[in-house]
Design a binder for these strands. Structure first.
Lengths: 144, 144
DNA sequence: GTACGTACTTACGATTAGTAAGCAATAGGT
DNA sequence: ACCTATTGCTTACTAATCGTAAGTACGTAC
C-alpha cells in the first residue's frame, strides 16, 4: 500500500469527531476550500511571502507587493487574520500605525507557499521557453 | 548573511541574459505572475493534485474534483498545458477520448502544491477553531 | 492654508467565474 | 426507427469578484 493510497483511504475516516477531522480539498463543500482560497489568492500568496521575511506595516506591504491595491490588500489581510495566519497590532496614534506579522500557523503556511513561489521563480525560464515554442507554432499571445 | 538576505540580493542579478533570469513574483510586471495565477487558481491546484495520483480523462477529472464546471476545467487544463505542466493526448475516436497527465515540470509543481494542500487539510481543525472563536465574539458568518 | 502621510472604506465600472445549453458521432435500449 | 446516453469541449448569458478612484480622520510640515 503506497503512501498515496493510505492517504486516500484516510480521507473519509469512520466518524471521528467532526471538530478533529482533517479537510478534503477534493470535496466541493469542505471548509478547507475557503482556506485554500485565502492562501492561494492572488495577493494572499505574496502577503505570506512578504510577511515571512519581516513584520510590516500596511503601507510597507503595499510598496513591497507590486501592483496590489489598498482595497485588495486590506481584504486579503482580513481573510488571513480571520484564519489565524496573520496577526494585526494597531497602535492608537495619528497617523495610524498598524503592524502585520505571521502567527506560528501563518509561518507554517508561508513555508509551503514560499516553496512553491521559489519553484515558480526558478522554473520561469523553462516555462517561458514553452511559451516561446508555442508562440512559434500557434501564433502570438500568451495565455492569461 | 541569512539565506533570505542572499535570496533578496539575488533577486535582481546584474544583467544576466534575459532568457535565463529567474522570475520575481513581487514585481508587478513579471511573467512569473501568470504562472502563479495558473498554478494557484482555484481549480489549478486541484487539477495538479488529482493528476499527481494518476493520468485522467477529462470527465474523470470532472468527477474527481468536486464542484468544477466543464468550462473552468477545460480552461484550467489549457492554462497548465500552455505552461508545459500538463500533457494532453487525444485519441481520434467517438466518443472522444482524451488523457491528461503531468509532465516532469508539472510533477515538480504538483509536489509543492500538494505539500501546501496537505498542510491545509491537516491544519483545518486548528483554523476552524479560530473561526469558532471569532464567531463567538464577532457574531455568525465565516469570511469568504 | 495647502499639501502630505497613514490605514482603511465605499462606490462604480471592468474583468472573470459559474450556469446552462449546444454539438458531432456513435452505441445501446425499446 | 427513435429516443437516450456518452465524451470533450465551446458558446451565450448571468452572477460574483476585482481594480480604480475617491473619501475619511487627524495630525505634521511647508
Amino acid at each position: 500500500m503506497s503512501p498515496r493510497q493510505s492517504r486516500a483511504a484516510a480521507r473519509r475516516p469512520a466518524r471521528i469527531s467532526e471538530q478533529l477531522r482533517r479537510g478534503d480539498l477534493l470535496a466541493a463543500d469542505c471548509p478547507s476550500r475557503d482556506v485554500l482560497k485565502h492562501v492561494t489568492s492572488r495577493w494572499g500568496v505574496l502577503v505570506l511571502i512578504a510577511l515571512e521575511e519581516r513584520t510590516c506595516r500596511f503601507s510597507e506591504l503595499r510598496r513591497t507587493i507590486g501592483g496590489v491595491s489598498e482595497r485588495m490588500l486590506a481584504q486579503t489581510l482580513q481573510w488571513l487574520e480571520g484564519d489565524g495566519l496573520v496577526d494585526r497590532v494597531a497602535y492608537e496614534v495619528v497617523p495610524p500605525h498598524v503592524e502585520y506579522s505571521l502567527t506560528p500557523l501563518g509561518r507554517a503556511a508561508a513555508k509551503r507557499v514560499r516553496a512553491l513561489a521559489d519553484w515558480i521563480e526558478v522554473s520561469l525560464p523553462r516555462i517561458a521557453q514553452k511559451w516561446d515554442e508555442r508562440r512559434a507554432t500557434t501564433g502570438p499571445g500568451r495565455a492569461r
